[in-house]
Design a protein around this nucleic acid. Structure first.
Lengths: 213, 213
DNA sequence: TCCTGATTGTGCTATTTTCCACAGCTCTAC
DNA sequence: GTAGAGCTGTGGAAAATAGCACAATCAGGA
């Protein structure tokens, strides 16, 4: 069955697919070959009905009475999310966070590979971080323009994030993961996602009242 | 006016408050003293009506015709989110990520302070990372139990995350920020938030189709 | 003092998201 | 074979979320 994608699929559904994919990978590593919406939902804290409905947007991946073949479902979700390939990623910022990202080994098996590491600080340029030589941000555009790099990560201080975003967009990047704790403006068609640990911490600290000092 | 909190406030509203607070801080730094739901919404890509409605859950913070006094609104949001104080945080995992967290200077002014850094690897224990001496995870419980530490961060490999979570919960932690790319189980009443960059990347790569190679 | 332009707070409506419940398919056991 | 247990896919109801639109209020200027 070909992948259904014509209908308009809610973004919130797309956002859950990576979680399903991640959980399925662990299930597979644990030796499971088949799973059910119920089992998956229990792991993820999501109702089984929601998982079935989410998956049904893309066609019938399961079999009634049996459940889902894990390798097959993984394969299909990788197709849907387009991670059945490796996206080259440019990282901007070679400080503590950028270095941690450069060292991280978990991207490749999930569809991404850090290929460039840029920084503006002359003291960092030329230094080796993991297997990368830190390149000057002034050459970002020239370096990336012939490369079909469509994914970038921003790991610079907040006051530099907007200019870095502009540079990345200028170099053809269409998806940006921004670790700087600030909102950035990008032209339509460019995607941005944010990671700010303090936002998560503050979300939780709201609930740390009552039964507490 | 006292803080309204009795009514049941949707979690999704709470989740946006840290974003409002963050944007307000930048507005203040830029020299603004007053803002409007419209201006704030424009910055955040959120409708002004939603911002007004979100804020109204906690009482009237603005003035008709004028807008919101930024310092006052910041103060009120800090109250609501309970970040008008500093929460001590325990970090588990002193690898590249844990070290980057330990070096990060952005927690304190937003309500959190890393106070402990634990690791299981004997080669790391005793080493200095930023201003911290890495402590053995075997002493996590003893170290934290008298400390009223209620917030923990997990920065260990996925296959260790569950046991670390159990340790933290055992030591009295009630809010966990998990950087390991795996779901963890915690008893009711304990909060967990997740940070997995690949989830965000895969969310975006879905949309990197069409108009693409 | 009164008019104008701006902005909030909110009742109500529209839209989105989640969930229920069941027909129908699948496999196993006997 | 056939009964029975288990599971998917899905229509439609329910719940949650977002947005509209406007009365009420405010500041400033004429």
């Amino acid at each position: 069955m070909p992948l259904k994608l014509n209908e308009n699929i809610p973004d919130i559904v797309i956002g859950r697919l990576p979680l399903y994919l991640r959980a399925l990978t662990y299930l597979q590593q644990e030796g499971h070959e088949v799973t059910s919406s119920h089992e998956l939902g229990q792991r993820l804290g999501i109702s089984s009905a929601q998982i079935r409905k989410d998956l049904s947007h893309f066609g019938g991946f399961g079999k009634q009475g049996t459940g889902y073949q894990i390798p097959y479902l993984i394969h299909k979700l990788q197709d849907v999310l387009q991670v059945n390939r490796i996206w080259p990623v440019a990282v901007v910022g070679a400080g503590n966070l950028g270095s941690a990202i450069a060292h991280y080994r978990g991207f490749e098996e999930r569809g991404f590979r850090v290929c460039w590491l840029f920084d503006a600080d002359p003291r960092r340029i030329g230094q080796q971080v993991d297997s990368f030589i830190v390149q000057p941000i002034s050459e970002l555009q020239a370096t990336l323009s012939g490369s079909n790099c469509q994914v970038g990560m921003i790991a610079v201080p907040a006051d530099r994030a907007q200019e870095v975003a502009d540079l990345l967009v200028g170099a053809g990047v269409r998806a940006i993961l921004n670790y700087a704790p600030i909102n950035i403006n990008v032209p339509p068609g460019v995607l941005v996602q944010y990671i700010d640990p303090v936002v998560h911490l503050q979300h939780m600290s709201f609930y740390l009242r009552a039964s507490d000092e």
